[in-house]
Design a protein around this nucleic acid. Structure first.
Length: 827
RNA sequence: GCGGAUAUGGUGGAAUUGGCAGACACGCCAGACUUAGGAUCUGGUGCCGCAAGGCGUAAGAGUUCAAGUCUCUUUAUCCGCUCCA
C-alpha cells in the first residue's frame, strides 16, 4: 500500500475519528465537489505512454453536443466503461479513457438557420455545457486529450485522409441516383434512410440524380466480413454487419439480345444469378427500368411509348412506394428477345420495377418455377413456368427448396452442388459467363449539400479535372456565409461564398472552383479514436509511437444503432489507413459491446415532445453523482433496455447513505475479522471482480449490497472489511470511496490503490446446504460438511423428519445423490 | 416475409449453465422510534389454504431421478432488414 499515513498526525485511531463524529449526514454535494476538485488539480486521470505497464484503451462513443445537453442515456455507457477503466487502473493497467465531441452536424446548422447564430458559436456553448455535465459525474476521462471534430486542427487531418482516399482511387465523383430528403434538402447515405424516410426529419426520401463524392467501401466488403473472425464483438453486431454487407455467390451470364427472328442486335445483356443451375427453367428476362440498354434500344421497341411511360412512372416513385408495393407490374419490350445461352431458345424480355438497378447487373433471368417473385410476375403476364427442380407443387406456388434437377439437359439428376459446378463450367467453356460475388453494400455517398461539416478539399479545373488542394495548405477552413440555407437545386450554402469558391488550380494555376459540398457527419468520427492517442500533434494525425503503444482499442462500447453506420465506416476507414501503413494493425477495435437504451418511466422513448426527458443535472443535484452512477449500473442488465424509475433510484441512495453511515461502526485495524467475515469479504471480491468484467453490473451491485447488509448486522466492523468495501466501490462511487478512505486516515487517493485479490479458498463455506427431494419435490434441506461422502449425505437425508414420514410405507426405488447439490429420493 | 432478441411475484430483475425458483432492490403490510430525517430500525410479503399440503417461470407437448434452463409446436412484445435475383 503506497504512502499510507495513518491518523493524519493524531496519536490514535479514536482521536482521529472524533473529528468526524458530528458529521452524521451524508453530504454528497460537499464530498463530490471536493474530490472532483482534487482529481482535477492532481490530474489524477492524466495518462502517458508507460512501457512498464500493460496498456488498456477503453472507449465510448463521443457525443454530439446537442443544445438539449446530456441525457440520462449517455452516462449508461460512460459509467460502464468508467467502472471498467477504474478497475483496470487499480489492477495495474495504464488506462486511456478519453472523451471528445462529435461536433459537426445538422442540429447546429438548423439552429443557425432559425436564429442566425453561427454553428461554431452554439456548438462551443454546447460543448461547455456537456463538459460541465460530464465532469459533474466524476468520470475518469483524461481531459487533456479532449478535442472536437469541428476544430480545424482536427479536421485538417480528416481532410488529409480524404485526399489519401482520392490518391488511392477510393474517393471518386459519380453521378448517381441518390436518396434525397426534400425537407432537409440533402442527400442521404443508404444507412441514413429508415423505412424510406429521412433518419433525421422523417420526411419521405425521393430519388434524385446528383454528382456525389463516393468512398469505395465495397472494395473492402470481403475483409470487413472476414476480419470479424479476428475480433471479439458481440454476435448481434457481427451478424448485423454481415447481413448488411450481404455477400452472395453466383454467376454473371450473358444473354444475347435479338430481334423477333433471332438475329443478334449486337447488344449483350448481362444478368446476375445465384442459381445458374436453374437456367433450363428460365422463361423470360427482366431489366430494371433504369437499365442503360432500355434507353439505348428505346427506338427499336414496337411499343416504345408504353415502355417510356413505364420508365417515367418508375422514376417518380419514391423508394418507399417502390418497395412497399410488391404486386408485379411491368412492360414487355416488344420486338426484341433474349437468347438463353444454355437452351438456345428465344424468350421475351420485360422491364419491371421489381428488378433494382443498384444490385447485381440490374437485369435478371427469371425462373418462375423456383422464385416466388418471378412466379408472381409470370402469373400476371401469363408466362410459362418450367419446373427444373423436383419437389413442391408449382401449380400453387414456386418451389424454393432444393431438389434433384429435371428438364435440365446435361444437369438432369444432379444435386444443387454438382449442377452449380457444371453450369458454371459450361458457361466458362462457352465463354458467356463466369462466377461472380455480389454485395448488398453500396459505396459510401460522401457529399452533403450543407454548411456545418468538413469542406471537401478538392477543386475542379477545366483542364486538370478534380485536384486535391496541396497538403501543406490544410486545413481548408469553412468560410463564413450570409445564409445557411441550402437551395432547391441541391447546392450547398457554401456555393454562395464566391470568394472562397473561386480559386486557382493547384496543378496548372488556371481558374478553378472549389467543391462546395461538405463531408457527412460520419467523417470526423471515423478516426477520432486515433487522435486520442496523440491529440496535440501538429505534424501528423498521431505519431507512430503513440499509435503503436495505444492501438488497438481494447474495449469499445456503443449503441446498436451505429452497427451499420459509424462502426462499419470506421472499420473501413481504419483498414484503408492500415493499407497505407499509417496504423499498426488491421482492425481498430478488439472488443465491441453494446448498451441497452434507457426509456422514460412510462416505457416510452425519452423525447422533448413527450416531455419525459430526465436531466442528469437534476439527479446529481438531488441525489449526487455517486447515486446516479450506481443507479445507472443497477437499473437492469446492461445490454437490455431499461425504464427510468425514481423509486429505485431512492433505494440506491439508501444503499450509498448506508455505506456512509457504516463508518461510525468501523474500528481500528487491531480488531480481527472472524473466519466468516473473511469469507463474506472474499466472496464479494470475487463476485464483483468477475461481474464487472462480464458487464453484469446490476448483479455486481447486488453483491455489494449483500456484503453491506452483512456489515450492517455487525456491532463493530473491523477496518479491513470496510477498506475492502471502499476499494470495491471505487469504480462505482468514486467520490464516496475517496472520502471514506480519507476519513479512515489515509492521505493517498483510493483510486491509486491496488484492486483487492479474491481468494476462492477463503470464500468457500466448509459446510453446504443440500436440498432433499422426494420424486423431484423439495421436502427439506440438510447441512453437511463440504467433504461429506455420498453415503453420509444419503443417511443424513433419510433421517429428516419430513422425509422419514413421507417414505415410511413406500419402497424407495432409487436415491440420486449429487454431492454439494441435491438428494433426490425416488419412490 | 426473412433474421435477431425477449417473455420469471404488484414492479425492476437473480438463478453457479440441468440440481432449493424469486438473490438484490422497489413497492406494499404490521410494529418500534423520532433531535421530522429525502428518515431510520425490526418483522412479513409468489399464489391458494387455518393447516397439512397443493399450485407456480407466456401457452401446450416431450426428454430426464430432476427443466426457468434441453427438444418440438404455438402465442405475444421489441429491434433490424425487406422485391438483393
Amino acid at each position: 500500500m503506497s504512502g499510507k499515513a495513518r491518523y493524519n498526525g493524531k496519536e490514535t485511531w479514536e482521536e482521529w475519528r472524533k473529528d468526524w463524529q458530528n458529521e452524521e449526514r451524508y453530504n454528497f454535494r460537499t464530498i463530490e465537489a471536493k474530490w472532483q476538485k482534487i482529481w482535477e488539480e492532481e490530474k489524477a486521470y492524466k495518462v502517458d505512454i508507460d512501457y512498464n505497464k500493460p496498456k488498456f484503451y477503453a472507449l465510448v462513443e463521443f457525443p454530439y453536443p446537442s443544445g438539449a445537453g446530456l441525457h440520462v442515456g449517455h452516462p449508461r455507457s460512460y459509467t460502464a466503461l468508467d467502472t471498467i477503466a477504474r478497475k483496470k487502473r487499480m489492477q495495474g493497467f495504464n488506462v486511456l479513457y478519453p472523451m471528445g465531441f462529435d461536433a459537426f452536424g445538422l442540429p447546429a446548422e438548423n439552429y443557425a438557420i432559425k436564429t442566425g447564430v453561427h454553428p461554431a458559436v452554439s456548438t462551443k456553448e454546447n460543448i461547455a455545457n456537456f463538459t460541465r455535465q460530464l465532469k459533474s459525474l466524476g468520470f475518469s476521462f483524461d481531459w487533456d486529450r479532449c478535442f472536437n471534430t469541428c476544430d480545424p486542427e482536427y479536421y485538417k487531418w480528416t481532410q488529409w485522409m480524404f485526399i489519401q482516399f482520392w490518391k488511392h482511387g477510393l474517393a471518386y465523383k459519380d453521378k448517381m441516383a441518390i436518396n434525397w430528403c426534400p425537407s432537409c434538402k440533402v442527400g442521404l447515405a443508404n444507412e441514413e434512410v429508415i423505412n424510406g424516410h429521412c433518419e433525421r426529419c422523417g420526411a419521405e426520401v425521393i430519388r434524385r440524380d446528383k454528382e456525389q463524392w463516393m468512398l469505395a467501401i465495397t472494395k473492402y466488403a470481403d475483409r470487413l466480413i472476414n476480419d470479424l473472425d479476428t475480433v471479439d464483438f458481440i454476435d448481434r453486431v457481427k451478424t448485423t454487419q454481415i447481413n448488411w454487407i450481404g455477400r452472395s455467390e453466383g454467376a454473371e451470364l450473358t444473354f444475347e439480345l435479338t430481334d423477333n427472328s433471332g438475329n443478334s442486335l449486337g447488344k449483350p445483356m448481362v444478368v446476375y444469378t445465384t442459381r445458374p443451375d436453374t437456367t433450363f427453367g428460365v422463361t423470360y428476362c427482366v431489366m430494371a427500368p433504369e437499365h442503360p440498354l432500355v434507353a439505348e434500344l428505346i427506338n427499336r421497341f414496337e411499343n416504345s411509348s408504353e415502355v417510356q411511360n413505364y420508365v417515367n412512372e418508375t422514376a417518380k416513385k419514391s423508394e418507399l412506394q417502390r418497395t412497399s408495393d410488391t404486386s408485379k407490374t411491368g412492360v414487355e419490350l416488344k420486338g426484341i428477345k433474349a437468347r438463353n445461352p444454355y437452351t438456345d431458345t428465344l424468350i421475351p424480355v420485360f422491364i419491371s420495377d421489381y428488378v433494382l438497378t443498384g444490385y447485381g447487373t440490374g437485369a435478371i433471368m427469371a425462373v418462375p418455377a423456383h422464385d416466388q417473385r418471378d412466379y408472381d410476375f409470370a402469373k400476371v403476364f401469363n408466362l410459362p413456368i418450367i419446373q427444373v427442380l423436383a419437389g413442391g407443387d408449382i401449380s400453387k406456388e414456386a418451389w424454393e427448396e432444393d431438389g434433384v434437377h429435371i428438364n435440365s439437359g446435361f444437369m438432369d439428376g444432379m444435386d444443387k452442388k454438382e449442377a452449380m459446378t457444371a453450369a458454371i463450367k459450361y458457361a466458362q467453356d462457352k465463354g458467356f459467363g463466369q462466377p461472380k460475388v455480389n454485395f448488398k453494400l453500396r459505396d459510401w455517398v460522401f457529399s452533403r449539400q450543407r454548411y456545418w461539416g468538413e469542406p471537401i478539399p478538392m477543386v475542379y479545373c477545366e483542364h486538370c479535372g478534380w485536384q486535391p488542394i496541396p497538403e501543406d495548405q490544410l486545413p481548408l477552413t469553412l468560410p463564413n456565409v450570409p445564409d445557411y440555407r441550402p437551395n432547391d437545386n441541391g447546392d450547398s450554402p457554401l456555393s454562395n461564398a464566391s470568394e472562397w469558391v473561386n480559386t486557382t488550380c493547384p496543378k496548372c494555376g488556371a481558374h478553378a472552383r472549389r467543391e462546395t459540398d461538405v463531408m457527412p457527419n460520419w467523417a470526423g468520427s471515423s478516426w477520432y479514436f486515433l487522435r486520442y492517442c496523440d491529440p496535440h500533434n501538429d505534424k501528423e494525425f498521431a505519431s507512430p509511437e503513440a499509435l503503436k503503444y495505444w492501438m488497438n482499442v481494447d474495449w469499445y462500447n456503443g449503441g446498436m444503432e451505429h452497427t451499420t453506420l459509424h462502426l462499419l465506416y470506421s472499420r473501413f476507414w481504419y483498414k484503408f489507413l492500415y493499407d497505407c501503413g499509417y496504423v499498426p494493425m488491421p482492425e481498430p477495435y478488439q472488443k465491441r459491446t453494446s448498451h441497452g437504451m434507457i426509456l422514460a418511466a412510462d416505457g416510452e422513448k425519452m423525447s422533448k415532445s413527450r416531455g419525459n426527458v430526465v436531466n442528469p443535472d437534476e439527479i446529481v443535484e438531488n441525489y449526487g453523482a455517486d447515486t446516479f452512477r450506481l443507479y445507472e449500473m443497477f437499473i437492469g442488465p446492461f445490454d437490455q433496455v431499461a425504464s427510468w424509475s425514481e423509486e429505485s433510484l431512492n433505494g440506491v441512495y439508501r444503499f450509498v447513505s448506508k455505506v456512509y453511515s457504516l463508518f461510525s461502526k468501523v474500528c481500528d485495524t487491531n480488531t480481527q475479522a472472524t473466519e466468516e467475515d473473511i469469507r463474506a469479504m472474499h466472496k464479494c471480491i470475487l463476485e464483483v471482480t468477475e461481474r464487472i468484467d462480464q458487464m453484469k453490473f446490476n448483479t455486481a451491485v447486488s453483491s455489494l449490497m449483500t456484503y453491506v447488509n452483512y456489515l450492517s448486522a455487525m456491532e463493530k466492523i473491523p477496518a479491513q472489511l470496510y477498506e475492502t468495501l471502499l476499494k470495491l466501490l471505487t469504480p462505482f462511487t468514486p467520490h464516496l470511496a475517496e472520502e471514506m478512505w480519507a476519513r479512515l486516515g489515509y492521505n493517498t487517493l483510493i483510486i491509486t490503490e491496488k484492486w483487492p485479490e479474491g481468494d476462492a479458498k477463503l470464500a468457500e463455506d466448509q459446510t453446504v446446504t443440500i436440498a432433499v427431494q422426494i420424486n423431484g419435490k423439495m421436502r427439506g434441506t440438510i447441512n453437511v460438511a463440504k467433504t461429506a461422502s455420498k453415503e453420509d449425505i444419503q443417511n443424513t437425508a433419510l433421517k429428516l423428519d419430513n422425509v422419514a414420514r413421507q417414505i415410511k410405507d413406500l419402497t424407495v426405488k432409487k436415491i440420486i445423490v449429487v454431492p454439494g447439490r441435491i438428494v433426490n429420493i425416488v419412490i
